[in-house]
Amino acid sequence: MSSALWIAVLASAVGTLLMRVLPLLWMQRRLERLGDDDGLEAMPQWLSLLGPVMIAAVFGVSLMPVTPGLLSWIATAIGVLATLAVWWVKRTLGWPVAAGVAAYGAVVMLTALVGPLP
């Protein structure tokens, strides 16, 4: 790798780190300035709104199967339903994820055994 390419890697790394760190420092100063009796109240409303919607957006993006196709979408739907069902009953983190992956995997493996749909 050339020196110029190393510099590009370092610039990307430092820039990415700064985008993660500088907003934290800004928010921490804001919290200090406003008094941290209730940190949540010191957070701008638009910012507290962005947290949940960013997670929802990441979820939406992650729903895209590795190999898109009718069967992988069916497997995704079944995996989502299995995850939701177990979450509804258990209200925990680990079991719903395990159930979702198991259901998704079962559909994918069954499909591989049976063969593709006509």
Binding site: S12, G15, M19, R20, L24, M27, L31, G39, L47
Partner: peptide
Amino acid sequence: PLWLVVAMTLLINLRHVVYAPNLAPWL
């Protein structure tokens, strides 16, 4: 061009700026 590579890399990562402030009240 490498400047464009770096610019595009940083542009894609721009969404990260809202993450840390959302965690700040609990840090």
